[in-house]
Design a protein around this nucleic acid. Structure first.
Length: 423
RNA sequence: GUGAGCGUAGCUCAAUUGGUUAGAGUACUGGACUGUGGCUCCAGAUGUUGGGGGUUCAAGUCCCCUCGCUCACCCCA
C-alpha cells in the first residue's frame, strides 16, 4: 500500500506553526473588537449559484478554480473560494437590515481554490474577512482600510504598500470600458495573447497585465478618473481625503482592477515584496451591487479579505514577534518507577489549580526528564523521589536560576505562584 | 492548464568518469554522571535512494514513464 499524503496544495499546520496562527488570530479578535466588528461562523460550502452569480460567471475563480460537487440530494455545492458572498447571503437570509446599519461582521476560516500551488498560494488557505454591510458612506471605506492597516501595524508588519483605486459603478464603468476598448482596439497587434482575449471579455484587466509590452501600451491608456460619474468621483475623493486625514500612506494606482466582478467604486490592495509573485497580503473594496446580483435587496457594502498564510509568511521573513510559544510552567519529574503514580497525582492537582504542567510517560531517566523540561521550556522542575515521598514534600527547582527548594506537597502550587510573582 | 528546477535517514545534506556493505551532521534513546537540564565524550537505533520500467557485468548516479515538491506564467488572499 502506498503512503497516503495530504492532497496537493493543502498542508498541515503543525505545533511548530500553529501557535503563530493563534497569535495572529488573537490580534484579529482584538482589532475586530476595537472597530466594532462581530465574529460570525459561516458554512464552508454553499450553493454553487451563490458564487457563480455573486463573483461573476466569467471570472477565473468561477470558471476554473472552484471545488464544485454534487451531494447525495443532487444539489450543486461549492467549497467557498472567498467569504464575501456568504456574508451577503447571510445578511439577506437573516434580515439584518432590521439592525442598525452598517452591520459589521468578520470571520476567519479556510477558503478553497483549485490553482497550481506556489509560494503564498495554496488550494486551501485561510482568510480573515471583514465586511461592513448596508452603508454607502465613504467614511466606512476609510474605516475598512484603516482596520486592515491597524491589524498589520499591531502584528509588526513593515514595508507594506497600500494601493487604492476606483473601479467606478454600473453607470460610469461602461463608459470607461468603451473608451478603453477604443484605445486598445488600435493596439491589438501589440498586446499579448491573453490580453487580446481580455479585450473582448473584460478590458479593464488588460491594465494589470505584467507583460512589459502590454504595460507600455497601458501607460498611455485613458485613466478611469476622467470617466467616473459625479457620484463615484466625489466618493473616491472622500476616501482618499479620509485616508490622508488619518495619516495613512498610500498610492493611487490607476492600474489596480479586481478579478471579481462585484467590486464598485473603491478597490484597494496591500502588497508586500516578501511574498514573491503572490504579493497581495490583503485585498478589498466596495461592492454595492453584489447583493442584487444574488437576488437580494440593494445593499451597499465594503470589506476586505487578508490571507492568514501570507501574513505569517511575511511576518516570518521580517522577523516579527509571535509572542511566546506555549510552554509548560512546571515539569514533573519522577525519580523512580515507584513514585510515578504519585507524580501523576501531583501533576493533576497542579493542573486543577490552573497551572500548565507536563510529565514523562516514557519511563525515562531523571537526567532525560530534566532535559525534556529544558527542551520544552519549562520554568520549573518539580522532583519527587523516595525521600520526598517519605517526608510528604516535593523538590522545586527553578530551571533559570538553578535554585532548588523543598516544600510540602500542599504548599507546592502556592510556592510556584509566589515565585512567579516575585519575578 | 503551460514552463523550469528538484526528489537520498524524522530534519539539513554527502556519495569521484556509473563500481562492490549508501555516509555525516542534527534530532532521538542510553551511558560516562546509579537524585539534577543547557557543555563535552562514547554507544545504539533509523533507509524499499518517491514509485515503475529500461540500458549495463554493475545504477543513488544514465534513459523513459509516473507521482510529488518548489518556483514562475496565469490569477489572487
Amino acid at each position: 500500500m502506498t503512503e497516503i499524503k495530504a492532497p496537493r496544495g493543502v498542508r498541515d499546520i503543525l505545533p511548530d506553526e500553529s501557535w503563530k496562527w493563534a497569535y495572529v488570530l488573537n490580534h484579529a479578535h482584538a482589532v475586530a473588537g476595537d472597530f466594532g466588528y462581530a465574529e460570525v461562523h459561516l458554512p464552508i460550502f454553499e450553493h454553487t449559484e451563490l458564487f457563480s452569480r455573486g463573483i461573476g460567471e466569467t471570472t477565473d475563480v468561477v470558471e476554473k478554480e472552484m471545488y464544485t460537487f454534487t451531494d447525495r440530494g443532487d444539489r450543486s455545492l461549492t467549497l467557498r473560494p472567498e467569504a464575501t458572498a456568504s456574508m451577503v447571503r447571510s445578511y439577506i437570509e437573516h434580515d439584518m437590515a432590521e439592525a442598525g446599519q452598517p452591520v459589521k461582521l468578520w470571520c476567519a476560516g479556510p477558503m478553497f481554490r483549485y490553482e497550481r500551488p506556489q509560494k503564498g498560494r495554496y488550494r486551501q488557505f485561510w482568510q480573515l474577512d471583514f465586511e461592513a454591510l448596508g452603508s454607502s458612506n465613504p467614511m466606512v471605506d476609510v474605516e475598512i482600510i484603516e482596520l486592515s492597516l491597524e491589524l498589520f501595524r499591531r502584528l509588526g508588519l513593515t514595508n507594506l504598500e497600500v494601493m487604492v483605486n476606483s473601479v467606478g459603478c454600473p453607470k460610469c464603468r461602461p463608459v470607461y470600458k468603451g473608451r478603453l476598448m477604443a484605445y486598445f482596439g488600435a493596439h491589438l497587434d501589440t498586446l499579448c495573447e491573453s490580453c487580446v482575449s481580455r479585450y473582448s471579455r473584460n478590458p479593464l484587466r488588460i491594465l494589470d497585465c505584467k507583460n512589459p509590452q502590454c504595460r507600455a501600451v497601458t501607460e498611455d491608456a485613458p485613466g478611469i478618473y476622467d470617466s467616473l460619474c459625479e457620484d463615484c468621483r466625489t466618493h473616491f475623493t472622500s476616501v482618499t481625503d479620509g485616508m490622508t486625514r488619518l495619516g495613512a500612506t498610500f498610492h493611487v494606482d490607476k492600474r489596480l482592477v479586481r478579478g471579481l466582478d462585484y467590486y464598485t467604486k473603491t478597490a484597494y490592495e496591500v502588497l508586500s515584496g516578501q511574498l514573491g509573485a503572490q504579493n497581495a497580503v490583503c485585498g478589498g473594496g466596495r461592492y454595492d451591487n453584489l447583493s442584487e446580483a444574488v437576488g437580494g435587496p440593494a445593499l451597499p457594502s465594503v470589506g476586505f479579505a487578508t490571507g492568514l498564510d501570507r501574513i505569517i509568511l511575511v511576518m516570518e521573513e521580517q522577523g516579527c514577534s509571535f509572542g511566546k510559544r506555549p510552554a509548560p510552567l512546571v515539569y514533573m519529574i519522577a525519580q523512580t518507577p515507584a513514585v510515578r503514580t504519585e507524580a501523576q497525582i501531583l501533576t493533576a492537582s497542579l493542573r486543577r489549580s490552573g497551572l500548565a504542567v507536563e510529565m514523562d510517560y516514557l519511563g525515562r531517566s531523571v537526567k532525560a526528564q530534566f532535559k525534556a523540561a529544558s527542551t520544552l521550556g519549562a520554568r520549573f522542575a518539580a522532583i519527587i523521589g523516595e525521600s520526598e515521598m517519605e517526608k510528604g514534600t516535593v523538590s522545586l527547582k527553578d530551571l533559570e536560576s538553578g535554585e532548588q527548594v523543598e516544600v510540602l506537597r500542599h504548599d507546592l502550587a502556592g510556592k510556584i505562584r509566589k515565585l512567579c510573582e516575585s519575578n
